[in-house]
Design a binder for these strands. Structure first.
Lengths: 142, 142
DNA sequence: TATTGTTATACTCTATAACTATA
DNA sequence: TATAGTTATAGAGTATAACAATA
């Protein structure tokens, strides 16, 4: 057993707790997605596509850390649903860029609101703790 | 637009930031799982099965919020790998309980350590923030 | 030659419905 | 009759390899 600093143990304990929270939310995501007739990964794509943004398919594959061939089917299904559209990229005819349709933007707005709706246990946290979380997470994600 | 209290907005902002963090980790999970030649959901099953615990298959389905038929294949693959085993449940011959094998317990130990290994950006947070996170998340998850 | 996106293929994850064994 | 788990089936998510169009 290697000696570990108290600071390292604190960091691991914090990350372990975040992991438990992650796995819990991971389990809840399919039901949340189903409220919009979406899959978890489709939710993620809509979350990533900001209105007015032009996102090359290859960049989406990078962000999702998945193979480009996977994005083809993913985009097919969202395009069939009328939520996103492929467009030719100006300047490089190999590239296709993705844009939210107006319908997609509307679904995304509702989805974002739903994703940001805190659970009951979270809402019961003291407001000072919630403020502390905002400050810490903003620093972490900046 | 409905009026929302400042407290409600703080809670939503905090939950939104947690959502972003969790979607990022969701993307990283397949690669982490692949370090152990596992899928994300297989990681989750090992995470849930504490050594020595007897978990009925139906309870696993509940915890994973998925259909029981799904658990059959999931358990098949982990059992083929020699990481878990089905056992008859004492008292009700319809039920099968799951247990970690010794090999499964070893993999779980390494997996838990890996899941708790904080990312570089997280380790760069002030130790006071990390301690605050531990305190807040323990309260949230209790 | 290298890169972007697609297709073909295979495996895992997931749900629904029908089934078996047991309660 | 009801419940626990399995099987059959189907669709979605994922990767690898081969391919077409373009750079």
């Amino acid at each position: 057993m290697r000696a570990m600093s108290a600071d390292h143990q604190t960091a691991c304990r914090a990350w372990e707790l975040l992991t438990r929270l992650l796995l819990e939310r991971r389990v809840q995501l399919p039901a949340l997605a189903a409220e919009f007739d979406l899959s978890p990964v489709q939710c993620h794509v809509l979350h990533l596509l900001e209105p007015g943004q032009l996102v090359p398919m290859g960049r989406l594959a990078e962000t999702l850390a998945c193979d480009a061939s996977n994005v083809t089917g993913l985009v097919d299904r969202l395009e069939t649903r009328g939520l996103i559209a492929r467009q030719p990229a100006p300047g490089d005819r190999r590239v296709k860029v993705l844009v939210l349709t107006p319908a997609g933007a509307r679904v995304r707005t509702q989805l974002q609101r739903r994703l940001a709706a805190p659970t009951d246990p979270f809402r019961r946290l003291p407001i000072s703790d919630q403020r502390a979380l905002v400050r810490i997470l903003e620093r972490l994600l900046e």
